[in-house]
């Protein structure tokens, strides 16, 4: 875990939804990292990543927003002692979009030049010299799950957790930090927190993403199938790393119930909320009140409230 006495400093990109509906993801991330002696510093003047990586090969415009954030990281690094040229985000969608734009401009100097021209008023030029990290890979590779387990004061004993990966942590494989078809990183984290990970068939199946805006009936079907497969394996709750998955799987459960009367409501949490709970963080770091399906009954039943 780096230097013994000095806490590590890590640039942090929260993303738009963590500052709106998903503040539970934001506060639980910052609080958990503090318990792990990692000093998280939110980037100054970060901007929206654009949420999706444009797949049309001639689209440079949609790379401008993500790359602007790389410049903010360089600025933060220049004025902060002990900060590396890298940053962390917990949002799977931000991670994917930022990482892909970064990979793209690193391999295409013409695109990078075009983007730097767009950003000519910036004092700092981007040269492909920033690394994008997801919180999960930071926890596994830098902190280590063994070290993380030592910080657990309230083991989540008996809690059956279904880890839902969705799409953007795993695909495409250039951005994946785990096996594309059968990832285990979240299960290993959950195990370190003392809980029991539950295998289920739909852990890497798409939730329907942005169709939630115009076609909630499609999301109802996806949510029914995904949550249903977790319920079949007797999970207590589902954890996610993406605020869009969280919205679809949690808030669209009412629609799923209308579609399928046998649908079983189940709480959906961010993995960071379980970390904060296991690290003994206080209520303001958990914000379970922002969940649509209340997780307290399930946690109470396991003696974890």
């Amino acid at each position: 875990m780096g230097n013994e006495n000095k806490p590590m400093k890590l640039a942090y990109y929260p993303g738009c939804t963590l500052k709106n509906q998903a503040t539970n993801f934001d506060v639980s991330t910052v609080s958990s990292m503090a318990k792990l002696d990692v000093e998280v510093e939110e980037l100054d003047r970060w901007n929206c990543c654009g949420t999706v990586h444009a797949l049309d090969s001639d689209n440079v415009m949609n790379r401008v927003a993500p790359i602007t954030n790389m410049i903010r990281v360089k600025e933060a690094q220049a004025r902060t002692e002990g900060m590396a040229s890298e940053f962390m985000t917990g949002c799977a969608m931000c991670y994917n979009t930022l990482k892909r734009a970064n990979i793209d401009v690193k391999s295409r100097s013409d695109a990078l030049e075009t983007i730097n021209n767009f950003l000519s008023l910036e004092k700092t030029k981007y040269e492909g010299d920033v690394e994008v990290l997801h919180l999960l890979e930071y926890l596994r590779d830098r902190v280590g799950f063994d070290n993380l387990a030592k910080k657990v004061t309230k083991p989540l004993k008996g809690l059956r957790v279904a880890c839902y990966y969705g799409c953007l942590l795993l695909r495409p494989k250039e951005v994946a930090f785990d096996d594309v078809e059968n990832p285990t990183i979240m299960e290993n984290l959950i195990r370190a927190l003392g809980a029991t990970p539950v295998e289920f068939s739909h852990k890497a199946e798409c939730c329907g993403a942005h169709l939630t805006v115009g076609k909630p009936e499609v999301i109802a079907d996806r949510t029914d199938k995904i949550m249903g497969s977790a319920h079949e394996e007797r999970a207590d709750l589902v954890v996610v790393s993406c605020p869009l998955c969280a919205f679809n799987l949690d808030f669209r459960q009412d629609d799923a119930k209308r579609l399928n009367p046998d649908f079983h409501n189940m709480p959906v949490l961010y993995f960071t909320q379980l970390m904060a709970l296991a690290f003994g963080c206080d209520k303001p770091a958990l914000r379970f009140d922002l969940q649509h399906i209340d997780p307290l009954p399930v946690l109470k039943a396991r003696g974890l409230d």
Binding site: C16, T17, N20, A54, M93, A209, H210, G214, L244
Partner: peptide, 18 residues
Amino acid sequence: EARSVLPPIATISAMRKL
């Protein structure tokens, strides 16, 4: 009502795609 519950991640991605 439908708009007010939607998180930015949903509306921005939907507008980008559709």
